Amino acid sequence: MKNIAVIGLSSFGFYLCKSLSTLGFNLMAVEIKEDLVNQVKPYVRKAVIGDAKDKNFLMKLGITDFDTVIISVGSKIDVSILITLYMKELNIKEIVAKAINDDHAKILEKIGATRIIFPERDLASRMAYTIAAPNFLEYIPLTEGFSLIEIAPAKEWIGKKLNELMLRNKYKIQIAMIREIIPERVVIPDGNFVLKDSDILYIIGSDQNIMSLEKDVSKDN
């Protein structure tokens, strides 16, 4: 079982603990505010009140026993930098740090963060795409300029084989998988897969090509 410590119980930190708890991880949460620690207790194995700026305090907690440390200390840039530096000095394998802006991210990366996250920015980006493209059930950015979308089939696709639609050739996208509702299962489709109105498609492609696909789906629906 993977051991994960979350330092800082901002809204992001709290909901992260809540979500991770459903996946069976061994979780520890660290926060200086008692009310936030009490709030997260039902979702973690260990919830500790304390100041993560104190390196000795973190060592006494056994922070080095954790595979991953996630640093989510709100808008306190100096605090997140200091804690990230401590994690690097303590040889934590995976250091995930929340950044406020690009300059903050650069500093975190230089001092040892193995992964930088921008929760607010990423959420705003996903929200913008789902508003601009109402046919998207979900939008997940993968890397710069490429995304994964979850979309229901256009009306004209229903009852047709994928190789008839030629979506890959027309839009330069890849159908990674299809979730069938009836029967409930996930499949990696081949060209002979016949689309049903209840199917959900998971498509990978460049943002430009995905938006071209969405425009055509909107016209049809």
Score class of each variant (00 low, 15 high):
D103A: 11
S80H: 06
Y86W: 08
L195H: 02
F57E: 02
V6S: 00
M28Y: 09
Q39K: 15
L142H: 06
T64F: 03
F118S: 05
K60P: 04
L167Q: 03
E120P: 01
I149L: 06
D65K: 13
A132E: 13
I4K: 02
I140H: 11
P119F: 10
A152N: 13
A99Y: 02
I188P: 08
D51W: 08
I7W: 05
G13K: 00
E34A: 09
I151F: 06
V40F: 01
Y202H: 12
G159M: 02
G24Y: 06
D190C: 08
I131E: 10
S11N: 14
V187N: 07
I100V: 15
G8A: 05
T130Y: 02
I149H: 10
K55F: 03
A29C: 04
I100L: 14
A29E: 07
K98R: 13
A105Q: 01
A105F: 00
N56Q: 13
I32Q: 13
N163T: 11
A99D: 01
M166H: 14
G8M: 05
V194G: 04
I181Y: 12
P189F: 07
A5R: 00
G74N: 10
Q39T: 12
D199M: 06
F12I: 02
D190N: 15
L137R: 11
I203K: 02
T68Q: 05
G24W: 03
D54C: 10
L9M: 13
Y129H: 14
S72V: 13
K219V: 13
T22G: 10
L123C: 12
A132V: 05
F136K: 11
I81G: 00
L108G: 02
L23S: 14
I203L: 10
D220Y: 09
P119R: 09
K41Q: 11
S19H: 14
L201A: 02
I95D: 06
V48P: 00
L36D: 11
N26S: 13
K172R: 12
E94C: 04
E89Q: 12
M127F: 15
L167Y: 05
I182Y: 14
K2N: 13
K172V: 11
L82G: 03
Y171H: 00
Q174Y: 14
S125G: 08
I117K: 04
E164A: 07
I182E: 15
P134S: 05
I63F: 03
V96W: 01
I188L: 15
P189R: 04
Y139T: 09
G191Y: 03
K33N: 12
L137V: 15
C17L: 07
Q39M: 12
I173D: 05
L82T: 08
S19I: 12
R126D: 11
I204E: 11
L36P: 02
S80F: 05
K55N: 08
A176L: 14
